[in-house]
């Protein structure tokens, strides 16, 4: 889309862009700035935009190992737990999502569309009401308060959608390549691994990042399933922290920045692939 260079058009667009940028970025920026303010400054009027006397106190307080609460809210531990769960469930989702995605896009079998639609709709069954039954289930399986249990649960939540993204993307890859390989005697699985997957990389990255973000920020199920301080995830820590320091937004801002940092790094490096994945037909017909 190359619009004609009319000044009025560009001014209008720029204003629209500014409005959108403000809407999207202001809240994050405001919280981020707050993390460098003192508690006194946050409580004083009139409100200040830039920190008057920038300080990193709020950040150092997070890692104050002399305090007892830092054992409960042990950030390095919380972050590594979240990382473990998010990364391993992402891997599970990728492997099984690809298998299923391949089947859904390449093989005609009875009930295919019905099953795919059913999987998609199942993503809705996740409200507050499922907390207790899920807890009971995990308990029966002996998987409550276990990172393995949380990983499996998140994988189950993430699989339908990942399958769908991957299936949609595989449809875009010409079938002829495989056909000729199969003529030469290659098996389905060989075709999948050697021919289709390399072409589907952007879609796989998209699905992976999508799932990673969801797993990283999930709170409700983690909060009820995880008990010991050794197995808690970062969002549980964040919620406790927010509850403790509700009106000290410098500390809340610092904790939030800390939690968001890893995921932003992932995005910083993955952004190009992510957009490419979307472009490559991950969600295109």
């Amino acid at each position: 889309m190359n619009p004609q260079p009319r000044p009025l058009y560009w001014i209008g667009l720029s204003i629209f862009g500014l409005v959108i940028a403000t809407y999207v970025l202001f809240p994050i920026f405001w919280l981020f700035l707050a993390s460098f303010k003192t508690t006194g400054e946050l409580a004083s009027l009139p409100l200040t935009f830039w920190p008057v006397a920038p300080t990193i106190e709020a950040y150092t307080a997070l890692f104050d190992t002399t305090s007892q609460s830092s054992q409960i809210l042990n950030w390095p531990r919380l972050i590594s737990n979240s990382f473990l769960v998010s990364v391993s469930s992402t891997l599970i989702v990728l492997v099984f999502g690809t298998l299923a995605g391949y089947a859904f896009s390449r093989i005609q079998f009875p009930g295919r569309d019905l099953i795919l639609g059913g999987l998609l709709i199942s993503r809705m069954f996740q409200g507050a009401a499922l907390l207790l039954p899920t807890y009971r289930l995990m308990n029966n399986l002996g998987l409550q308060d276990s990172l393995l249990g949380l990983t499996l649960l998140y994988s189950a939540f993430g699989l339908p959608f990942a399958t769908w993204i991957i299936a949609s993307s595989l449809r875009e890859i010409p079938f002829e390549l495989e056909e000729s390989a199969m003529m030469d005697g290659a098996s389905r699985l060989q075709c999948m691994v050697k021919i289709v997957l390399p072409l589907a990389t952007p879609a796989l990255i998209t699905a992976a990042m999508w799932h990673f973000v969801g797993a990283w920020s999930e709170f409700a199920f983690a909060s009820i399933l995880m008990e010991s301080s050794d197995s808690k995830t970062v969002t549980i820590g964040l919620a406790s922290f927010v509850e403790l320091f509700t009106i000290e937004f410098n500390r809340v801002g610092a904790a939030a920045s800390l939690v968001a940092m890893p995921i932003m790094l992932v995005f910083f490096f993955g952004q190009r692939y992510f957009t490419r994945g979307l472009l490559a037909g991950a969600v295109k017909g």
């Binding site: 709170f219 969002t235 927010v242 939030a256 939690v259 995921i263």
Partner: peptide, 8 residues
């Protein structure tokens, strides 16, 4: 905004 946890 998408990557920030809901609680925050």
């Amino acid at each position: 905004p998408w990557v920030l946890p809901d609680v925050v």
